[in-house]
Each structure stands twice: as structure tokens, then as C-alpha cells.
Design a protein around this nucleic acid. Structure first.
Length: 728
DNA sequence: AGCACGCCGACT
DNA sequence: GTCGGCGTGCTC
């Protein structure tokens, strides 16, 4: 029966990939009686211990004295499509194959036995001694239904002790609650959505793409409130009708109760939820349900991409432009791109949704590789806010002030009308720079080249790059002049000071990621803002997305130029996206909204595109400016990260890489001069932008380069801005 | 991922 | 003189 009679091992040999940082599968002998095929999960000896691994191929074994496979693991085998995905992602990200396999195999260190949740049921006579609390508990359990113990206690507003006493009295029986269904069957016809004409047309196209069951990517573009979710739900419904699975990828923070409610309203059940907070047995059960095909719809963060779906019929990437899709530690990949690749491998249509599509996605849409569907209007007749620029050269705030006359007027009007205002400034702390008026000394981070940000509430100087914190001194450390330190520029804390001076009667709040009291308090405050408890919100990026503020009718962007001048090739794009998001916060309730953006450069193409309301204009402007700067077009970029211990070392590596990369035709490095030096936790990382033409396979080139050197001392990683479509 | 080996800083 | 820091290398 065996093809390899020469080996003493009747089963021949297999190459086993181990989920560790190994790029090559190791060969093992297969003991007699064991039949293994690619995809099988096995136990193998590795050095002094045992590990799991996956049979990657039949033996190309090196004959001789191989260790033997210990045995098969009782687990469904990896299907060929998933193996292909692992191979592809490893090749593309330059990560060892084993590291990518680890994303798929994710062994949860979890031995917690499943603790059945206990419920109680009203079965017996009331107890001899009745008390008001007992009566309430019995009333709440009326009907003889099995109710969760703690839920019942809460419903009757009694303590658990009361329930327990009733159990002892024989009034209640204790039974195990049925395990909550991890993946109930969604009903595609549970609730028919009401779609506008435009939405229905887009939905029809998406449904058709699911019906053909062929790979294809559709960009579904529409502003917040245009009903993107309802539209792609129709594609999900179609996949359910066909008995196939759907994956909805979303940024972790987007997996909110709000989304789940909408899903439940449409399909009658909750989707399978996959994110970092789902752990233990629940995670295991969901994984099993996904592998068996029982879980029809999975909504998950980026790691859901590597789950073993049995029959994937649709992938949705919600908010495709979100930076959260980038994984930068370990295997660095962009989940949106890998989703497209998985769709191709599984032959499933892919839907990307966004209000502000990323440039690479726009490029793909423009080149016709993606179908582009637009939902132009806000649903329900709600108007988009009107946007206006304030020219700070004309309307100049006083020295040490940052709010222009026009914006002050707008805020006062809003206060008078009892409507909320949002002041957006993407800068935490009090002031971004502190200097000595006497000697000109500037406070700089000892690790990085960045200025230290004054956090006055915390009485500290903080580096926003590496997290370095020092006390804010009273005298200049260079010239020892007393009381000479001066804050330069505004942060949200300083802005709050100005707001308090200008509008002493207004109720204001500062919302930023260093909100005192942590995330929980922050959530509470967001709710408080939504219910109208504050008049003026001063916030960073944090307020740009997420919570809806129905009473917010004015958004003032304090410094719209911030982020337009940085050396980062994606800075303009990010600025455009965040400004579009934050200005879109105005007028989400009953009343129409408006936004004022303060700028020193009203003619800036990014701002003009923003004001026009047409994102295509931003894309056109960016393309033109990149061309003018001699930068390669988007879609052909790779970021290369080189780590080193000193700035000089990093610089040297960068040069070596640049020289090396210049060798083949079509690959070049936009040298270290253009690569901003960033320092992370005391370790310098140089990011190089490598450009390639489509004729040259950058991945293969870099892989070859890594093998033959000159090898830099630090680690080298390839970031994930390359466009995988070029290689599909 | 573990685990060994190996090379420089502060201690019994 | 050693203990121990973690950088680098190896596991069929």
C-alpha cells in the first residue's frame, strides 16, 4: 500500500509545519499504521518537547534518521484553501510560514472546564415563612420558566441569598441553563428592510455578486447614515439563503451593541462574535461551529480572517480604511488586503465599505479591479452639515488664543440656541512644546527627537512617541532661570482654559485618551454628552467616531492644517478622513449641523476637497500632488522597517538597504532622508518606503535580499502598504 | 514558542 | 571571583 517501501517506517515521511517562527516544514517519519494527508493536525517531537504541527505535504523527507510523528490530533484537518492562505500570507508578509500558521492554530491556553450556568425554576409551594423579598422573587419567577439565578435576583431586586433560601425551602429547583446558542441560525427574511431607491439598487448588485459565487471585490461607499450596513446585510441574507457562510470583518471597536442590535433586528439572532474578549470555552465552541458550517455569520475583528470556515460565501470588510486592520506586531499584515486574498482563494465575493475609502482602494476601484457602488445620500432625508473655512490670516485670534472671532460667534449662537458644540483639536495635553524664554531651551525626549508635551493637569512633560514621562520643573534645566518656561501652541487642555474664559457659563468637558478615570469613566462621559449634559465638548481624535451626539449642531476644527504638512506619505489621507468624520458629527439629530474649519491655508487642495463634499476630489488632488513630488503612485508601495539600537546604526542600515534595493530594475528605496525616524520605547526603527513597478516582484526580491545580506543587526520587517492585487 | 549558549555589569 | 541580564541561534 505504501509508496515508500525503502523506509523502515511503513508510513513513509511527511513534512510538518510547526506554528513557530520557522519558515520550513520539518520532515518526520510516519509510524506504521498511521495514514496522514496534508492538512492533518499532528503531534510531533521538537527538540526536548512535543508540539502540534500540520502536515504540509507528503514527504520530501531526508531519508535517514528522522524523528517520528507521535500521533494525530483529534481535530478537523485544515482545508487546502486555508493552507494556501497561510502560504500566501507568509510569502507576502515575508513572515515565517510557521508564524502565519500560528494565527490559524491559535491554541488557547485554556483548561477552564465548562461551568454550566445555573438557573432556577418555580416548582414547589411557597416557604413557610414569607418575607417581602421572597414574595418578589416568587412573583418574578411566575410561569415556571427556567430563569438565570442572577437575572432573577436582579429582576426581583433581591439578593442571591434570598434565591438560595428559596432553593433550600424547595420552592425553587436548580437546573443547568441550556448553553446559550453560540451560533443560532439567522433568518434572512426575519425583517424586510425599507430601502431607498439608491440603496435597493446597490443591494441588488451585491446580492447578484453573492449569487454568482465568484471572486470579485466591490467598494460600497457612502457617508455615515447612508445605510451601508442595511445594504450589505442584503448580501449576507443572500449567502444565508444559499446555505453559505459570511464573514463580516470590522475594527474591534466597531463590534458594539449597536451593530449587534441592528443585526438582530434584521436576522432575528445575534451573529457569531469573534474578538479578543471572547475567550475560553465560548471561543472554542464558536470555532467548532465555524468549522462545521453551523455558524452562518461571523462578525469579527481581524483575527477572524484566519478561522477555518467550512464554506465561505461572502466576506465584508466594514470601514475598510480603518487603521485597526493593520497588524504590526509579529506577522504584520493588513486584514483588509488579506480578506481580498482569502476571497480570491475561496472564490467568494468581497465587499469593502467606507465613508472615506483608502487611497489604495480608490486606485483599485478606478482601475476597474473593484466595482464601485456609491450611496450618495443620507437616509431619512437628513442633510449633511454645511462646511465652511475660517481664514486665520484674516480672522486672527489674540496672542495666546486659538479660537477665531467667527468660531466664537458660532459657539455663542449655539449656546443661546441651547445646542451642543464640538471643538476638535487633535492634540492631547496642554501645549505641544515648552521652551525657556531666557535661553531658548526646548524640552526634548531623551529617547526620541520629539518635543515633550506639557500635560498640565498631570503636572508632567510627556513624550507622545515613546511614553517617556518627567516632572515639569519650575526652572529652566539649562540656564536655571526661574519662571521662564513658556508653553507654545495649543493642546485640548489649553483650549479648555480658553473656552472657560470665553464662555464661563457653559458646561464644558475635555475628552481625550488620557481622560482621568480610564475607559469606563470616558464611556460614561460620552453618554452624558449624548444626553445633552454638556454644552461644549473639546476633544481629540477620540470624538471623531463612535458615539452619536444628537444634540451636536456645530463642529469647530481648531487647526485644520495639523497633519497636512507631515513627512508621512499617508498624512494627508488620514487628515482628510478624520476631518470628514469629525465634521460629520454635526447635525446627526433633528437639527441641521455645520462645521467651521480654521486654517492658514484656505486654498489647500485637501481642504478644498473636503469643503466640496466630494471625496473623489481629494483623490484627484492627492494623485496630482504625489505626481508633482515625484512619488510613486499609490498601490506600489512597501514600507520596510529596520530596527537598530542607535540612530546612527539605523541610518547605516537604511543606507545599506537603499544601495541594495537599487540593484534590480524597477525597485528603489526612497532613501532614509524621506524615511521619518521614529523611536519606539527606546529602540529606533527606520521606516523606508520602497517602491516597485509591477514587473518586479518586490516580495521575492526582498526575500532574496534578506537571505544574502548584508544583514542588518536589528530585525527587519516589511510593513503592509503594498497592494496585494498586483500579485493575485 | 521554549531552551541553551554566551558575553558584559554589580554583588555575596 | 560568580550571578544574571537578555541577544542570538536551534529545533526534522
Amino acid at each position: 500500500m505504501n509508496d515508500e517501501p525503502e523506509s523502515g517506517e511503513g508510513g513513509g515521511t511527511v513534512d510538518v509545519l510547526i506554528p513557530l517562527g520557522l519558515d520550513q516544514a520539518y520532515s518526520y517519519a510516519v509510524p506504521n499504521g498511521l495514514v496522514l494527508k496534508p492538512g492533518d493536525v499532528v503531534h510531533v517531537p521538537l527538540g526536548p518537547r512535543e508540539t502540534v504541527g500540520v502536515v504540509w505535504s507528503q514527504g520530501s523527507g531526508r531519508g535517514g534518521n528522522l524523528k517520528r510523528v507521535t500521533g494525530r490530533v483529534d481535530m478537523p484537518p485544515l482545508d487546502p484553501a486555508l493552507m494556501k492562505l497561510v502560504d500566501w500570507v507568509a510569502w507576502y508578509t515575508l513572515a515565517p510560514k510557521g508564524s502565519v500558521l500560528a494565527l490559524v492554530l491559535r491554541r488557547q491556553p485554556d483548561d477552564t472546564p465548562e461551568r454550566p450556568k445555573l438557573g432556577v425554576r418555580l416548582v414547589g409551594a411557597p416557604p413557610a415563612r414569607m418575607t417581602p423579598a421572597r414574595a418578589r422573587a416568587i412573583a418574578a419567577a411566575e410561569g415556571g420558566l427556567l430563569t438565570g439565578k442572577s437575572a432573577l435576583a436582579e429582576a426581583a431586586s433581591v439578593s442571591m441569598a434570598v434565591i438560595d433560601s428559596l432553593v433550600d425551602a424547595g420552592t425553587f429547583s436548580v437546573e443547568a441553563l441550556p448553553r446559550d446558542a453560540i451560533a443560532a441560525m439567522p433568518d434572512p427574511d426575519h425583517a424586510q428592510p425599507v430601502l431607498s431607491e439608491g440603496q435597493a439598487a446597490a443591494a441588488k448588485e451585491l446580492v447578484a455578486s453573492v449569487q454568482t459565487a465568484a471572486f470579485g471585490v466591490t467598494l460600497l461607499e457612502g457617508v455615515t447614515g447612508s445605510g451601508k450596513t442595511e445594504v450589505y446585510f442584503e448580501a449576507v441574507a443572500q449567502a444565508i439563503r444559499q446555505g453559505r457562510q459570511s464573514l463580516i470583518l470590522m475594527p474591534e471597536i466597531a463590534l458594539t451593541a449597536q451593530f449587534i442590535d441592528r443585526f438582530e433586528a434584521r436576522f432575528g439572532v445575534r451573529p457569531g462574535l469573534w474578538h479578543s474578549a471572547v475567550t475560553g470555552r465560548k471561543r472554542e465552541r464558536l470555532q467548532a461551529a465555524i468549522a462545521s458550517g453551523e455558524a452562518r455569520v461571523v462578525a469579527g475583528a481581524r483575527s477572524a480572517l484566519f478561522l477555518p470556515y467550512r464554506d465561505l460565501g461572502l466576506i465584508v470588510v466594514d470601514e475598510e480604511h480603518e487603521a485597526a486592520y493593520k497588524q504590526e506586531d509579529g506577522v504584520s499584515y493588513h486584514a483588509r488586503d488579506m480578506a481580498v486574498v482569502r476571497g480570491r482563494i475561496e472564490n467568494a465575493p468581497v465587499i469593502l465599505t467606507s465613508a472615506t475609502p483608502s487611497l489604495e482602494t480608490r486606485v483599485n476601484a478606478e482601475r476597474g479591479r473593484y466595482t464601485h457602488l456609491k450611496l450618495p445620500e443620507r437616509f431619512g432625508g437628513r442633510e449633511l452639515p454645511t462646511l465652511g473655512l475660517v481664514d486665520l490670516r484674516q480672522d486672527k485670534p489674540e496672542r495666546g488664543r486659538w479660537i477665531s472671532g467667527a468660531l466664537i460667534k458660532a459657539i455663542s449662537d449655539n449656546l443661546e440656541a441651547k445646542e451642543q458644540s464640538l471643538l476638535f483639536l487633535n492634540r492631547r495635553g496642554y501645549a505641544p512644546l515648552t521652551l525657556c524664554r531666557d535661553c531658548g531651551h526646548r524640552f526634548q525626549c531623551p529617547n526620541c527627537s520629539a518635543w515633550l508635551v506639557d500635560h498640565r493637569f498631570r503636572r508632567a512633560l510627556v513624550c507622545h512617541h515613546c511614553g517617556h514621562v518627567e516632572r515639569r520643573p519650575h526652572e529652566c534645566p539649562a540656564c536655571h532661570a526661574a519662571e521662564s518656561l513658556s508653553a507654545c501652541g495649543p493642546g485640548v487642555e489649553r483650549l479648555a482654559e480658553e473656552v472657560a474664559t470665553l464662555f464661563p457659563q457653559a458646561r464644558g468637558i475635555v475628552l481625550s485618551s488620557d481622560f482621568p478615570g480610564g475607559t469606563e469613566r470616558l464611556k460614561q462621559e460620552l453618554m452624558a454628552v449624548a444626553s445633552g449634559e454638556f454644552d461644549i465638548v473639546i476633544g481629540t481624535q477620540l470624538v471623531a467616531k463612535g458615539h452619536n451626539f444628537p444634540g451636536m449642531t456645530l463642529v469647530g476644527v481648531v487647526d485644520a492644517d495639523l497633519g497636512l504638512t507631515s513627512g508621512d506619505p499617508r498624512a494627508a489621507e488620514r487628515t482628510f478622513q478624520v476631518l470628514r468624520q469629525v465634521t460629520g458629527r454635526a447635525g446627526r439629530g433633528e437639527r441641521p449641523g455645520r462645521a467651521l474649519l480654521q486654517t492658514h491655508d484656505p486654498g489647500h487642495p485637501v481642504l478644498k476637497a473636503l469643503i466640496s463634499g466630494d471625496p473623489e476630489r481629494f483623490y484627484a488632488a492627492e494623485t496630482a500632488s504625489r505626481e508633482a513630488a515625484g512619488l510613486p503612485p499609490f498601490g506600489r508601495l512597501a514600507g520596510l522597517i529596520v530596527s537598530a539600537n542607535t540612530a546612527a546604526e539605523a541610518e547605516g542600515h537604511a543606507r545599506a538597504l537603499a544601495r541594495c534595493a537599487d540593484a534590480p530594475d524597477g525597485v528603489s528605496v526612497l532613501g532614509p532622508a524621506e524615511a521619518p525616524l521614529a523611536v519606539l520605547r527606546g529602540r529606533h526603527r527606520v521606516r523606508l518606503i520602497v517602491k516597485t513597478t509591477r514587473e518586479v516582484n518586490l516580495q521575492d526580491y526582498l526575500r532574496a535580499w534578506l537571505k544574502r545580506g548584508p544583514k542588518p543587526k536589528g530585525s527587519v520587517r516589511v510593513a503592509v502598504d503594498v497592494d496585494p492585487q498586483s500579485f493575485l
